[in-house]
Design a binder for these strands. Structure first.
Lengths: 358, 358
DNA sequence: GTGAAAGCGCTAACAG
DNA sequence: CTGTTAGCGCTTTCAC
């Protein structure tokens, strides 16, 4: 026989469909006895609930939104593209995903904005913004109001029950350090560490992971104090040329911010007798090109597509009061070399057959 | 207004539900005129089809099976685990996934087995077996009979329209070579290359990719001829000790087969004055432990969970006559270092919140 | 060629 | 506390 349905359950347990439904959804108002009767039938028949049918009956639509910074460079654009793509493919499943580039730099602005969101507008939001007390507060309120929340990329999980989708930044920093250490085996020296700003929690964590590995496993190398570009080309030029002049023993550079273009472009213009080992974060058109051209030795990345789809799945699960499948939602720290960039980068042939199937 | 339904379409186009359905599913027997009328309504209303409802109405169940080798070591076990896990989570979507460890080493046995499968048993199969003319033939027949087919890990795409889910093995070999080359910068020398057998297409491709990069980018190094273990411990010991004795300049080892335990264990027992840079494929309990313990410098892996879920999604799409979403189904070549193994390996805390959501 | 009506598995008012 | 009934959006006979 095919999969048993609620009807079969009702018959087996000697109750009506409505009662089966009540038990299935843990709704109150059913005698303990009947509950067990139904549950027995469930296990006996090996009943598995048909979620699509349930959602159809509920005519449930999930209204989700991604709230992103208003300003950003290539990485943000990549994330955006994946959101748009994912929005399309989730639409058939009754999940409406919108995208709003509204978050400013001021934590208060962000908090004020979040305060306007209610369950009438949205069922869940995914927020990409730096950690701040205001933000933590605002997300807690949002959740109390009944809006599911996940933090994208940056944030601390578990503290208030808000999920975080993104890589472990300490591990990412450690990975960068390991690569630099190994790549510099023949020429250990000083390491330039460059960030947008070290005020962001994720930057600090990356730096911590980085330092741990360098100190512990590569005693011949020294990671210099972090330089902060603040996104300013002039300043970047100044601090980099200054640092390179002061430290002739620099053999490597680590750019730990998500937007690596500015420091990498400036770095490329600096004179340097030795070829420096350089590692940056996130796959963008820019880092990809540099990697293929030999101007970058490795890229530490998190797959933006996975990131977005994972955030959507987690939100959906939370909307239903379900727990996400942790093993599926873990975002891997990818190491990209010129050789494992995959199709998107430079090859023509997909491994999927181009024509229709069976 | 909420998302328009078929009913709205019918009204807008001045036809019945049945006709809308015929157009939606490209069924014959509709006047050209009415077809365009419906299509106009579709675009005008921005109609998006509700797939769950469609599947419910069809009471479509997808019966898929993974056909795996009867014999294998840890990597196969990992794949198996993921199949079982995926089977559970896809069950709610009406996708029944079974697992059969039935494939032997003989291509004819495999072909004979595939010949017994009909659309009455299964809607799609995912086959993990080495390339062979018999297999290609058998899969082609299967597809003709109306059973969707994807090849797992090994195979050639597009040739007969059969999809292949797995990494690009040439790129994987190239990635291994790049890492070995860079890690050996201070001590270039000869590289031991070890395989189960070089009769498998994927082994050959990895070797090709490996050689290309070594030759082109690391002229100071030499990749020795491939040694074949044939899964035999005695033989492995003999050929390895022989090779190490003959080539005192060996500074690296590349194990290119999916099951790396045997050669790595034997290699560990071999005396060696210099610490060798060692790289192997696939994440298993064994390679993970070795990586963390420093006995392995990197692991080139394909995420078994993605692999399995991707195979299922592709089969499902083909069953429906849809094209899979290529960007989502590309399997990344992961590089694993001790630092980016992630939660599963050694950490306790998940980044997902442990308690219920909004 | 096209339409009417029943039903997929489940939920959500209502009655009782 | 429990059952009846009418759908959710789409497909599928079977008539017309």
């Amino acid at each position: 026989m095919l999969r048993p349905t609620t009807k079969d359950l009702a018959k087996a347990a000697g109750v009506s469909l409505a009662t089966v439904d009540r038990v299935l959804n843990g709704r109150p108002g059913v005698r303990e006895e009947t509950v067990t009767a139904v549950n027995t039938a469930i296990t006996r028949l090996g009943f598995v609930r048909n979620l699509s049918a349930a959602n159809l009956a509920r005519s449930r639509v999930y209204r989700l939104a991604f709230l992103l910074p208003a300003e950003g460079d290539q990485f943000l654009a990549t994330v955006e593209n994946h959101i748009v793509e994912a929005a399309k493919s989730f639409e058939t499943e009754g999940i409406q995903v919108s995208l709003r580039r509204v978050l400013g730099k001021d934590p208060h602005q962000i908090a004020t904005l979040l305060a306007t969101i209610t369950p009438d507008d949205l069922d869940g939001v995914s927020i990409l913004a730096p950690e701040s007390p205001q933000l933590r507060d605002a997300t807690a309120r949002l959740r109390e109001r009944g809006v599911a929340v996940v933090r994208l990329l940056a944030g601390v999980a578990q503290a208030d029950g808000t999920d975080v989708v993104g890589i472990d930044n300490r591990a990412a920093g450690a990975t960068a350090a390991r690569l630099i250490g190994r790549f510099c085996a023949a020429s250990p020296g000083q390491i330039l560490v460059i960030a947008d700003t070290m005020n962001a929690r994720d930057s600090v964590e990356r730096r911590q992971g980085f330092d741990r590995v360098i100190t512990h496993d590569f005693p011949g190398m020294v990671a210099l104090p972090s330089l902060e570009t603040h996104g300013d080309p002039e300043r970047t030029r100044a601090i980099l040329s200054n640092s390179l002049a002061n430290h002739p023993g620099i053999t490597a550079a680590y750019v730990l911010s998500a937007e690596a273009r500015l420091p990498l472009e400036v770095l490329a213009q600096m004179p340097g007798p030795v070829r420096r080992v350089t590692i940056a974060h996130e796959r963008t058109a820019f880092t990809e090109r540099l990697l293929l051209g030999g101007g970058l030795d490795a890229v530490i990345a998190q797959n933006a597509g996975h990131l977005v789809r994972s955030a959507i799945r987690v939100l959906r699960a939370r909307c239903d009061g379900r727990a996400p499948i942790a093993s599926q939602e873990e975002i891997r720290i990818e190491i990209l070399l010129p050789d494992n960039l995959g199709n998107a980068a430079h090859q023509g042939g997909l491994r999927l057959a181009s024509s229709g199937g069976a």
